[in-house]
């Protein structure tokens, strides 16, 4: 090798450069997400550990049971009946999507699409902000956008 003296430091410099983000964050952990837990309620549907780990699976089961099987009551491990509804049951206690759901979801960069349709507590008042007339004009001036 003729240019080892240049190539090897070059490779080292390159590796250091590529891993720069890693080194610059070394030892500094991003702060742990702190979702706001409702104060007036002591218990969730299931235990805290279970909810942390399995809430997405539980919600998927609920949605399947309600929409497809027309079953609306979930019996939890303590034998208590619970109305299976994200919008009307979960959010009854967890009164803020921003301070609860979003905190962890943003941390792990998860973007579930629940809230495209379900109405979060913050938006119960509605969205009809624009004047209908301007919307009509806007609508007729635009070609329909494609789906997703």
């Amino acid at each position: 090798m003729h240019d080892a003296g240049k190539v090897i430091p070059g490779i080292i410099a390159f590796v250091l450069f590529v891993t720069l983000p890693f080194w610059s964050n070394f030892g500094k952990a991003a702060p742990k997400p702190q979702p706001e837990i409702p104060k007036e309620y002591k218990k969730c549907v299931e235990s805290r550990d279970f909810m942390r780990r399995e809430h997405m699976k539980l919600l998927r089961k609920w949605r399947f049971d309600v929409v497809r099987n027309n079953m609306r009551i979930y019996i939890n491990s303590e034998g208590q009946p619970i109305n299976m509804s994200l919008q009307n049951e979960c959010m009854r206690c967890h009164s803020s999507k921003k301070k609860f759901c979003d905190v962890c979801h943003n941390y792990v960069s998860a973007h579930p699409y629940c809230w495209n349709c379900h109405i979060p507590p913050e938006e119960r008042k509605g969205w009809a902000t624009k004047e209908v007339k301007s919307l009509t004009e806007e609508a007729s001036s635009k070609q329909p956008a494609s789906h997703h």
Partner: peptide, 22 residues
């Protein structure tokens, strides 16, 4: 739903979901 329906819902029923575009 050619477009996001939400701006066109004047007085939403908070107990029922909306739909999304598409």
């Amino acid at each position: 739903n050619w477009r996001d329906p939400r701006p066109f819902i004047k007085d939403p029923n908070p107990e029922y979901p909306t739909r999304m575009k598409g």
